[in-house]
Design a protein around this nucleic acid. Structure first.
Length: 401
RNA sequence: GGUGAGAUAGUCAAGUGGCCAACGACGGCGGACUGUAAAUCCGCUCCCUACGGGUUCAGAGGUUCGACUCCUCUUCUCACCA
C-alpha cells in the first residue's frame, strides 16, 4: 500500500495534467498485487533524432513507469511524419526516405536506451499498421470524428478563424495518432501538454473501436531552456543536447539559475521526491550550499549520457578552469607562418567574428595572452607559442613560426 | 480580381531631404560583484590595421550638391472587399 502511494506520487511528479488517474492507480495496484504489467505509449517524430534534455523529460517519465512494471511502446511515427504534426507548426514537412528513417531510428535507440531499459521497451513503427489499414480502413477511421469537433482543437480553431489554410491531411494526423493507440491497445499514453488533443483522440478511438479500454493520458510540461523562460529548443540556442560533450553539459547545467535547478531536479533527476525534499530543506536552512546541489545535478546528468568517469573529469576540469582560473586541458590549436597581428589572430582562431569585434574585445580588457591581460590593439605576435583567451571561456593555442 | 497599408541591423521598432552607421527595447558579447548562478550596475553591439575609410535601411532605376526619407517600376507581406 505504501509502495502504491509512492509509485503514484512519482508518476504524478512534475506532470501538467493526468486524465483518468483512477485507471493508472488500478494498473499499479494490479502490478503490485498480482505482478500484472501494462503498456505505456509515447510517440516520437523520426525527423529529429538529436535529442536535448527537453525531450528527455518524457523519457524520464517512461523510465519511472518501467520501474513500476510498465512495458514501453516506443513509437516512431514514420508514417505520420509524412503528414507533419500540425501542432504549432505552419510549414509542411518534407518527406523522409525509408533509409533515413531507419538511420534516425537507430540513433534514437542509442540515445534513448541510456535512460530506458531495453528489456521493457518495444520499438514500433506506425507505418506497419497504418499502411495495412488501406483505403477502406482509412475511410472508416474518418467516420469516427467530425469536422466541428476537429475544429475544437485550439490551433485549428485559430487558424480557421484567421483564415489560414488547414489541409485535410492535417485533420487525419490526430486520427492516425489515436489509431496507434487502438492498434497497440495502450493502457497509458504520455506526451507534452501541446499534444493534449491528439492524446485524447486515442481515448476516443479506443472507445469507438471497442477495444475494451480507454487509455489514461499523462501530459508533461515543456522544459524551460537555460534562460529559464523560453522552452528548450535548438533554434533558441538555450538547450543542452544529450550528445553535448561532458564538459559542455556540465557547464551548461551549472549555469542555470537556482530556481530553475529545482525544476530540472523535478523533471530530469532520477532522485526520488523524498531525496529532493531533503536537499531543498537543506538549502533552505543553510546547511547545504545551492552550488553543491547544482553540481550534483550536473554530475548526474553527465553521468547518464556519458559515464561516471566523464562526469568526474568534467567536474575537475571545471574547477580547474573556473574556480582556479587555469587553462583548460584540451584547447584548440592553430598555427601560422609569419608574424601576425593580434586582432587577425583572434579571428583566425575562431575567437572573434571580425577584426572589429576583436579590437573591441581588446579595448574592453577581455583578451589575455598567457594569462596576461593585454590592451594594445596593434600588438604583433612574433614567433613563439601563445595561449589566447577571450572572455572567460574561449581559449586557443597559437603557434607562430 | 479590387482597394488600402507596409518592407529599416539577430528580433521588435523609431526615423518622412543634410544633425544617420541610423533613437529605443529585447537578445548577444565583455567588465564589476559572485557560486562561470540569479539579481544588480557599467560598457560594447555592420565591415576594414581604423583620430580615417568602405558598404548599409526589400530590389532596380531616377530627381537632387546631398536620399532611409521624394518619383517610377519589380518582388514580397498584411488588412478590408469580391
Amino acid at each position: 500500500m505504501k509502495m502504491l502511494q509512492e509509485a503514484l506520487r512519482e508518476i504524478q511528479r512534475g506532470s501538467a495534467e493526468i486524465i483518468d488517474i483512477q485507471r493508472v492507480e488500478k494498473l499499479l495496484k494490479a502490478y503490485f498485487e498480482e505482478g500484472k504489467t501494462y503498456t505505456v505509449k509515447a510517440g516520437f517524430d523520426p525527423t529529429a533524432p538529436d535529442l536535448h534534455l527537453g525531450h528527455t523529460v518524457l523519457l524520464q517519465k517512461l523510465a519511472t513507469f518501467q520501474k513500476y512494471g510498465a512495458t514501453i511502446q516506443f513509437l516512431i511515427g514514420d508514417f505520420t511524419a509524412q503528414i507533419g504534426d500540425p501542432t504549432g507548426k505552419s510549414v509542411t514537412r518534407k518527406t523522409l526516405s525509408a533509409l533515413q528513417i531507419q538511420e534516425n531510428a537507430k540513433s534514437y535507440k542509442e540515445q534513448v536506451f541510456k535512460i530506458l531499459d531495453p528489456q521493457m521497451t518495444e520499438v514500433v513503427f506506425n507505418s506497419e499498421w497504418i499502411n495495412a489499414l488501406g483505403a477502406s480502413g482509412m475511410l472508416s477511421l474518418t467516420t469516427t470524428y467530425n469536422v466541428a469537433r476537429m475544429l475544437e482543437r485550439d490551433d485549428f480553431d485559430k487558424r480557421y478563424k484567421s483564415g489560414t489554410s488547414i489541409s485535410i491531411s492535417e485533420f487525419i494526423y490526430p486520427l492516425l495518432q489515436g489509431y496507434d493507440s487502438v492498434h497497440l491497445k495502450s493502457d497509458i499514453e504520455i506526451g507534452g501538454t501541446d499534444q493534449k488533443f491528439n492524446l485524447l483522440m486515442g481515448r476516443h478511438l479506443q472507445r469507438a473501436y471497442e477495444i475494451g479500454k480507454e487509455q489514461s493520458v499523462l501530459m508533461m510540461p515543456i522544459l524551460e531552456g537555460l534562460d529559464g523562460v523560453q522552452k528548450m529548443s535548438k533554434s533558441l540556442n538555450n538547450y543542452i543536447g544529450v550528445a553535448d560533450t561532458p564538459n559542455d553539459m556540465f557547464g551548461k547545467v551549472l549555469s542555470i539559475s537556482d530556481e530553475l535547478m529545482w525544476r530540472y531536479y523535478e523533471l530530469l533527476s532520477a532522485k526520488s521526491l523524498n531525496e529532493i525534499e531533503v536537499l531543498k530543506s537543506g538549502v533552505a536552512n543553510g546547511s547545504l550550499h545551492p552550488k553543491t546541489i547544482k553540481e550534483e545535478l550536473s554530475m548526474e546528468i553527465v553521468e547518464r549520457f556519458h559515464s561516471k568517469e566523464a562526469a568526474q573529469n568534467a567536474k575537475d576540469e571545471f574547477e580547474r578552469v573556473h574556480s582556479n582560473s587555469q587553462i583548460p586541458t584540451d584547447i584548440d590549436e592553430f598555427s601560422c607562418d609569419e608574424e601576425i597581428w593580434i586582432a587577425k589572430a583572434l579571428v583566425d582562431c575562431n575567437m572573434a567574428p571580425s577584426t572589429s569585434q576583436a579590437r573591441r574585445d581588446i579595448k574592453q580588457g577581455a583578451v589575455k595572452i598567457n594569462q596576461e591581460k593585454i590592451s594594445d590593439e596593434q600588438l604583433q605576435l612574433s614567433s613563439g607559442e601563445y595561449i589566447l583567451q577571450v572572455g572567460k571561456r574561449k581559449f586557443a593555442k597559437l603557434k607562430v613560426n
